[in-house]
Amino acid sequence: MSSALIVGVLTAGGTYLILQRGIVRIALGFTLLGHAATALLIAAGGTSTRGVPFAGSGTEAADPLPQAFALTAIVISFGITAFLLTLAFRSRDALGHDDVEDRSVPEDRSFPAHYDRHVGEREFPHS
């Protein structure tokens, strides 16, 4: 019951945040959603299929998979959050703000003249 509540509240908060326009809010929203998924994975472990995770409470080993899943999921969501924040940082550099739906960015469908300007030039001058 308590894990259901935790997952529900986290998902609600995360969903609200990812519907916002700023990239930082979206990143925070995905952090919450990631926590919701982690909590759900742990809750999914249960004790119905394998033993309980307390020493001395039984002969059967506890279910190691949910912990492994949760750890993997945490690492992945950590990496993604870092990437999203980098995007926010870069768009503050490039646009002056982190608003995704900024209409001042040209919607030109044609091929810009300086198409490849950024490839291998700016961050890696030695290449």
């Binding site: 995007l87 490039a94 646009l95 995704v100 960015v105 700016r122």
Partner: peptide
């Protein structure tokens, strides 16, 4: 996002 332009960011 490798090309890093404004439209790529969006």
């Amino acid at each position: 996002a490798l090309r890093g332009g404004r439209r790529q960011l969006r």
